[in-house]
Design a protein around this nucleic acid. Structure first.
Lengths: 376, 376
DNA sequence: TATAGTTATTCAGGACTCCATCAATAACCT
DNA sequence: AGGTTATTGATGGAGTCCTGAATAACTATA
């Protein structure tokens, strides 16, 4: 959050203290000055000073005092989440999803538009524009109120917000999403790969909240991974981290074949669910197909786990709806290969995870400017 | 380095400033006050104040003014590396190595004792004691001058400094090295796995100095890995990171067989070098053996690279002496599997790398206490 | 209903750290 | 010996934090 705690000016100290007060306040909501000062490690007097300052800048607001307490009722403050809005967008193969949230990441409105995977670039961008407009309208928010935007997309993304490579959407390669979004909304725009953002969401407010090191598996017809290392999203030198699936020995390329074979010729994407349903009902062939799928997935997953030794593995993506059929076999397979099998948890975000990660990306941007500067 | 930049007291600001001045000073050595103030971002007056403070505490010393400059010669300061000593120990299968350094990590003396791999636990610990004593005597340093100690050992280490598992030295499992060393020297003692520390050394003052993400491969009859992620040593939840070798699909278990087969029945460890020499001389069979070895190693290495997308891969360990025969084939194999092949570099530490990593571990301990507190 | 008890708030005084500025000082070069 | 250049030292002012005493608001109890 803070770039370099290099010390310096007196005002720098005030900045740091203001930042901690804000952080404490955001950790749990309405606090009295005395509580605040205790948790921030400052004297009451200074805390008051800082609070007045933050109040003036619009970062915090006052809440009605709590009733029914002994003594003079204390003023209570909370983080002013309504001061600005965040936009998080998930551009997937089958849908575009836009979330408008407050500065806490609380979702105010979501808009969703289904699209065909074979849709062209221009048309997809048009859908994106429409979806963002819908979300803003639904939340009753002007474009100008958006402080920061996060965008998730399939494919690998470079540092500037351009899509470098997308094998599921060939037409998508080369799109400069950051530039496109910047025309729509003010404030910074950051773009990132969908797996990575789903991982970020899980470590932010998902099932991996308290873990420092997390492996997130996006399980679907496409298999992907996102890594949280030391509490932060790991990107790597050229943003190609987590691409273990490219290694044939990892088994991820072959894995979905087991499911497709069971389905037969009709390979329409949405039908894959049927295998899991059948397996749950005890269909022998379906169970075998699922087992084969898991066995293949598990090799790559084990490679990730053995490399990083994470605290928890999170299963997300389309197949996570059928996680009850997947988790136990996966655990058994990981037990087979790993020195220490991490906890396995299933995402609880349904198909919102990626978009929430995008929101988190937007929020990180805001936090980084807040915590060193407190300018806005 | 700094736990929580929580701000707080006025004295905290002074601490931060003192820490930055020290950091600046350590980055490159003798500096005048004006230079120091410029780089630390403080006013000259404050810098002087801080410098006087640090001088009084023994953290910096004065150097003779530079001659041949115009104007009044400025006082020059440098980090007082002689204020304390560090001890770094590498306990390997075939040798015990102890380094005594100053606070910059400059080696004052090294002591080395060769041991047989089959040596028992008590005897090995006795050798360790001897080696430490030799190193101290050779450097002319009293035990009491040692501020901090780092220990590298084969096998996996738990958080308290106990060896949890060592397959190369079965008798070693369960040894409480931290406790043992604490009886020998004052100050904190930290213990870590040898691969991890070799990686740390490379990112500290080795060939991976400027990289944020590094995969270090310890190539020898045993293959291992250490990971630097975001500039820090990655340990994982239970300190089992980098153990990709446990996965059969990674090929690391099988890899040395290629070399052993060429060598024939006489499998004495030191002879492996012969394969590489023969391969360099053009022996067809030897070349085939080396190629097979590299092909197997490369699968696991690719798994690490694809997972993390590091900037550089460093080859260390016993075989790094023959790196000229290994690097090119390895690069070709990585090209085959990886989306982006990182730079490949060869360690320049010969067999000192692990011990230097141990020194770095000791130094980190000192830095963490220095930068928040400045007590000693 | 009045008073004691409890907790928050407000205010003033004191201490510490940093900065800007200016005069004094020291060494080197010509 | 004088000029040049840079450092050193001292002073005053500003910003921030802390402590402690006085005041304010509300509850509980007689």
């Amino acid at each position: 959050m803070i770039d370099e705690p290099t010390g310096g000016d007196l005002s720098r100290l005030r900045q740091l203290n203001a930042a901690t007060v804000l952080r404490v306040l955001r950790a749990d909501q309405p606090l009295t000055l005395t509580e605040l000062s205790r948790r921030a490690g400052l004297s009451r007097a200074s805390t008051e000073d800082v609070a007045r300052d933050l109040l003036g800048r619009g970062w915090v607001t006052e809440v009605a005092p709590a009733a029914g307490t002994v003594g003079r009722p204390a003023r209570r403050y909370r983080f002013h989440a309504e001061a600005g809005r965040l936009l998080g967008v998930d551009i997937g193969g089958h849908k575009v999803l836009a979330l408008v949230t407050d500065l806490e990441g609380e979702v105010l409105h979501q808009a969703r538009i289904a699209v065909a995977p074979e849709l062209g670039r221009r048309e997809r961008l048009a859908v994106l524009d429409k979806c963002v407009a819908d979300a803003l309208a639904g939340a009753g928010v002007e474009r100008s109120q958006i402080w920061s935007t996060g965008v998730a997309t399939t494919g690998l993304v470079d540092g500037t917000g351009k899509v470098m490579l997308s094998d599921s959407l060939p037409e998508w390669t080369g799109v400069d999403l950051a530039a496109h979004l910047r025309r729509l909304v003010p404030g910074p725009v950051r773009v990132e790969n969908d797996c990575k953002l789903a991982a970020l969401a899980e470590s932010w407010r998902g099932v991996a909240r308290y873990a420092k090191d997390v492996v997130f598996l996006l399980a679907g017809l496409r298999t992907g991974a996102g890594l949280i290392i030391d509490g932060k999203l790991h990107r790597g030198f050229a943003n190609w981290s987590g691409e273990i699936g490219a290694l044939p020995a990892a088994g991820w390329l072959r894995a979905p074949e087991h499911l497709r074979n069971w389905l037969g010729a009709d390979d329409s994407g949405d039908d894959v669910e049927r295998v899991f349903l059948a397996a749950r009902d005890g269909d022998r062939e379906a169970m075998r197909a699922v087992r084969g799928y898991v066995r293949d997935i598990a090799v790559g997953a084990s490679a990730l786990v053995l490399t990083l030794d994470p605290e928890v593995v999170v299963i997300g993506g389309g197949f996570s709806r059928s996680a009850d059929v997947l988790v136990e076999p996966l655990r058994r397979e990981l037990d087979r290969w790993c020195l220490r099998t991490p906890e396995i948890r299933v995402s609880a975000f349904a198909d919102l995870g990626v978009a929430l990660g995008a929101v988190r990306l937007a929020l990180e941007q805001v936090e980084s400017t807040v915590y060193n500067g407190l300018k806005p």
